[in-house]
Design a protein around this nucleic acid. Sequence first.
DNA 1: TAACAAACGTTATATTATAACACCATGATA
DNA 2: TATCATGGTGTTATAATATAACGTTTGTTA
Lengths: 132, 132
Amino acid sequence: MARVQTLSRNQQIVLDIIEKAKGPLKAYSILFNVQKKGINAPQQIYRALDKLIEMGKIHKIESKNAFVACRSSDCEISKATAFSICESCEMVDEISDTKLSKYLSGFNHKKGMKFKRFNLEFFGICKKCKKD
Amino acid sequence: MARVQTLSRNQQIVLDIIEKAKGPLKAYSILFNVQKKGINAPQQIYRALDKLIEMGKIHKIESKNAFVACRSSDCEISKATAFSICESCEMVDEISDTKLSKYLSGFNHKKGMKFKRFNLEFFGICKKCKKD
DNA sequence: TAACAAACGTTATATTATAACACCATGATA
DNA sequence: TATCATGGTGTTATAATATAACGTTTGTTA
């Protein structure tokens, strides 16, 4: 049916905060930031996060338990995510590299398992931090 | 200096359990399994886990907050990890594929960040589960 | 309008992880 | 030998992350 997804109130509030943020946000930091808007409980945050992830609007950075907005146009690719993560300043950058994505999507496990999805996290020190 | 790492008592106990396990283990499940050996507190587990990871003896599966033994000979490659994860039975398999590893180690971010390390997690349904 | 699905709000609780402090063994070194 | 740094231990307490379970409200669609 592929109908246009419209966001609920809480989903929109949570998405707004994540999109405005400069870096990845943790669930409880989102919570503290929206209490003025009448959201009081972790559940409300986690529910919105779950849906936003489903929709491909945001991604979870697994190594940090934190969330970033998707920057890849309209994210058909939430099934093929790659990030670059600075270990010094915690900056996270979504990598959209067609070659990389194709390479990994086409990767076949020797043991015959067919992959539906992958997540790749690169770590290093970003340019900015290197200067210091 | 590269001296041979010898494991402390707690580190050895924790490693043994993880190596014997058929799948990834969670920290608290390790804890419950070693209480007969006089380990009573999460700290003791987490400390051992941290060191074992440093040594490359085990890996953390970030998407599951769980730990598996390293199966790649003696893991020079704890800086370049890849796993295949079954979403049905939770089985985790370490992928050691030289090509893949080289490809990713050589991958360069457009924005000029130099990577020290990566972790890749593939998801799908394993052969066994597919049959059912 | 009735029926259903999806989102909501709330309370409680489970799970994962770290802080902080005191103690002990080892080995280097002054 | 004294002392000091290092790394491991054990313990209590607490922080941070995430889910269960319940009933209500809202929005869609038949």
